Amino acid sequence: MLKQAAIIALLGISSASFAGGWQLKLGGSVLAPTQDTTTPLGVVKADHEINFTPSVEYFFGDTPFSAELLLATPFNQEVTLNGTKVAKVKHLPPTITAKYNFKNSTRFTPYVGIGATALITWDESGVADKVKNDFGVAGQLGFNYQPADAKNWGVYFDVRYADLSPEVRLNVANNYTFDLDIDPIVYTIGYSYKF
């Protein structure tokens, strides 16, 4: 699904007149899982994590549409079983969204977006000897604000939701396997720069 979304976005960019512009966003995010997973072994949770999450956005000419690719430095997320840390996993959450920007006469621009996300995992440790990559739908809601004295700079805040439930295999109880319901909300605040 992520590959299809990327291809569609690239085709859209190539068919545009390139009269639009680019925006670089440098932000920090809190990844907050919204679900717990109940298993025969007990309750499994993924913890909250804070990270640096830059993104790149392209605006299609004078239209209100844009496409944004969220990047990140690797997340190091802990997993607990009945409140006890049992595993840790590194992962990246690349996310691409097609956005609608509500342009108006003010410097405050709200936006909404929908797209696809991925959970790319590696370097599992603890009793989790395998966490599979996962793919899902992503939604986005936020705003960009450009101060009156700023030509290209602005500040932004957005909230994203990702539908992610990677399969986890524990090297206990005959390699017990289950889907870890994370479905995180990602809160991001930062600076934006148009060029």
Rank of each mutant, 00 (worst) to 15 (best):
M1K: 12
Q4I: 09
A5S: 15
A5K: 06
I13C: 03
S14Y: 10
G20D: 01
G21D: 02
W22Y: 07
L24W: 07
L26M: 11
G27S: 05
G27V: 01
L31F: 08
A32K: 08
P33N: 07
P33Y: 05
D36Y: 01
D36Q: 08
D36N: 13
D36K: 06
T37A: 05
T39I: 01
P40M: 07
P40L: 07
G42T: 04
G42M: 05
K45C: 00
K45I: 00
A46V: 00
I50A: 12
N51Y: 04
N51F: 03
T53V: 11
D62A: 14
P64D: 09
L70N: 14
L71P: 02
A72N: 15
A72E: 08
F75Y: 15
V79M: 14
V79H: 06
V79N: 09
V79I: 15
T80I: 07
V86A: 10
K90L: 08
K103R: 12
K103M: 12
T106W: 10
R107D: 14
F108Y: 11
A118Q: 10
A118E: 03
T121I: 02
D123T: 05
G126S: 09
D129Q: 12
D134N: 14
F135V: 12
G136R: 06
Q140R: 12
Q140A: 06
F143N: 07
P147K: 13
A150N: 04
K151L: 11
N152R: 15
N152E: 13
G154Q: 06
Y156V: 09
R160N: 10
Y161P: 01
D163Y: 05
D163P: 02
E167V: 00
N171E: 14
N171R: 14
A173S: 15
D183I: 07
P184S: 10
I189W: 06
G190V: 11
Y191H: 06
S192H: 03
S192L: 04
K194L: 06
F195N: 12
